[in-house]
Design a protein around this nucleic acid. Structure first.
Length: 277
DNA sequence: ACTAAAGCCTGGCTGC
DNA sequence: TGCAGCCAGGCTTTAG
């Protein structure tokens, strides 16, 4: 489940592997992946384009080309990039292919068809969907405790649910939202508008810490460079989550059994001892 | 301006 | 053992 740190890792690896390369041929195999474009148009816009830069905005990967267009990719749940030698067959669930000028090709696979791609003019990106309404990046100066409190301040919804709203805070998914709340000692059911200034500071600090630690853990993995998403395989226990996917297991801080309940149609994990209010 | 819920999708798991 | 049905979950859309 790629959230900001995992998407950051994919973007970094993609950057190492494809910046400077030219797409000699592109093919959209499943039109639903990029519903705004016809497959021929998709192919035409990328053919002959050289990759200038790979960036990230929230959970979106931005591949900027020298033709002033940008390929926006959202991995959603199961989207992944794979760099393949020329002779290797297409992997299962391949929905887009990009042949590079060094003979290799980049495949986009997506078992569950949640991922999406869009090609937009680079100079219109920030004003266009799907980036237009995104909150500031957590590591930008703009993202301060005051911003956080302001962004959450009007909502009566549970804090955990609002943290997943990418127009308020960008980059958190179900795992890091739960982890940040646990680290800050805040109950996930707290109505967002009831977050005090003091606790907003703690939450702000822990959001940054949990994201930074995950990025740093991922960047030290010694993985196969062809494996673009190495760094986020594995389940909760292996990744060392404090609450996520640990229902019934003792909290590392206080020993109370971690609890799970449904919030906004997804599982929330928390510690009843550390996150009383 | 806000909130809630359905829908998208497939594979793995649960319970009968 | 077989299989229906549930669950995972990021995000958009629709309805209220």
């Amino acid at each position: 489940m790629p959230e900001l740190p995992e998407v950051e890792m994919v973007a970094r690896r993609l950057r190492e592997l494809v910046v400077g390369r030219t797409v000699v041929r592109a093919r959209l195999l499943r039109p639903g992946l990029a519903p705004a474009h016809s497959p021929p148009q998709f192919a035409r816009w990328l053919r002959g384009a050289r990759v200038d830069e790979v960036a990230r905005r929230g959970k979106h990967i931005l591949t900027h080309f020298d033709n002033r267009r940008t390929l926006v990719t959202h991995l959603r749940m199961t989207g992944r990039f794979l760099l393949l030698p020329a002779e290797e067959p297409d992997p299962a669930h391949t929905h887009a292919l990009f042949w590079l000028d060094d003979g290799r090709r980049l495949a986009f696979t997506d078992q569950r068809h949640f991922g999406m791609m869009l090609i937009a003019r680079r100079d219109e990106l920030a004003r266009a969907e799907p980036l237009r309404r995104l909150a500031p990046e957590p590591f930008d100066e703009e993202f301060t405790p005051a911003y956080l409190r302001e962004a959450l301040g009007r909502s009566s919804r549970p804090l955990k649910v609002v943290l997943l709203d990418q127009t308020r805070v960008v980059g958190l998914g179900n795992i890091y939202a739960a982890e940040a709340l646990h680290r800050a000692g805040i109950n996930p059911r707290l109505p967002a508008r009831r977050l005090s200034t003091h606790r907003a500071e703690a939450l702000h600090r822990e959001i940054l810490a949990v994201l930074a630690e995950a990025i740093s853990a991922g960047s030290t993995l010694n993985a196969d460079p062809r494996d673009l998403d190495a760094g986020y395989g594995g389940g909760g226990a292996e990744r060392g989550w404090r609450v996520y996917d640990r229902e019934g297991q003792p909290c590392f801080a206080c020993g109370a059994p971690i609890r799970r309940f449904t919030q906004g149609a997804r599982s929330t994990y928390y510690c009843p001892g550390c996150q009383r209010r």
